[in-house]
Nucleic acid binder design. Sequence first.
DNA 1: TCTGGGGTCCTAGGACCC
DNA 2: TCTGGGGTCCTAGGACCC
Length: 393
Amino acid sequence: MEKQILHIDVNNAFLSWTAVERLKRGEKIDIRNIPSIVGGDESKRRGIVVAKSNIAKQFGIKTAEPIYQARKKCPSLQVFEAEHEIYKKYSDKLYNLFLEYTEKVERFSIDECFLDMTGYIKKDQDIMKVAIQIKERIKKEYGFTVNIGISDDKILAKMASDFEKPDKIHTLFKSEIEEKMWNLPISELFMVGKKSIPKLEKMGIKTIGDLAKTDPFVLTKKFGKYGALIWNYANGKSNEEINYIIEKPKGIGHSITLPYDISNLEELEEELVKITEKVCYRLRKQNMLASSINVHLKNKDFKSYSHQRKLPYRTDETKVIIENAKILLKELYTGDEIRLIGSRVDGLVNKEEMQLSLFDSSVNKKSVMLDKTIDSLKNKYGYNIINKGIELK
DNA sequence: TCTGGGGTCCTAGGACCC
DNA sequence: TCTGGGGTCCTAGGACCC
């Protein structure tokens, strides 16, 4: 049976959601109708464009560009802070709405879902009618717009939702790829990013159609698995399933761009401890144990380097993880001026499964008890209620 | 006050084992 | 009188996505 897939994408998600929330709070101006963006804090050197209104887009403002540059393009630009709790709230609402139509919903990102409608469409309906109904319900019930792509292939559905915006539905069935997709530049193809574009162009591949008609053997030879992947995408043969089962994370990380460059180990260590504590807290919230820890630095010239090491045993203990993170930082640090520091745990496994199969060495351990106490305080009174002595200095 | 932060997956090379 | 070779594990780095 042919698959029936929808890809639903919120138009300018963070900006739309901020707009809706502000209207709800009684603000008069709908920021979707003025040149506006959601952006990071410039005073903390996190000033990039995260989302933009369509008017801002008309000024040539691009996602991820520095805000100062965006302002040059449009001096009257209004900048709003991101409000992640609100975004999570709208994302959850959408997901629950989609579950009314099929149980096979994949959350692809905070503002995008795939719906596998195969076998879920009633006799008096068709997939277009369902898409229209979903789109109109979201607009009416929540006050923002979405784009919907319809296809018999997952990646084609995603490509289709990216066609003309906002508030539109497009089909891109396998039978339509020549007509609707092959004339587009390769940069439009999912998974073709800025590093691959010049390489492909050098081979004379400028459009998705050019890519589709290239010998897949040549692509595989040059790009490995990646070559085969994009060739399949260009030919509408992704054959990917909708992963509607909620997966546990494989790693958890946190990184910060520092408000100013730091060039001494002690200060970096303080930052590392803070962010690693947060990582460990999130790890325990997931009820998982980590196998390895990774520390990542970026210097003022944007050169990145990282080290990782196996933990002595799979653990969620702040003390053990921080000790190992500190070792990595000492190995890594060469005296550079550091712009960004990151910490992440990987190789996560479920805690319960581990405790069934192994002698549980953590019972009554002092550091485990301390983590539990701190976590419950944080859960009750908020993350920042308790800080280690290092932050009180 | 120019360039975020959170992820996943792939590759290449070295260590080590048989 | 070059240098086996297959497999696994580990690390570092990079590409891509939103």
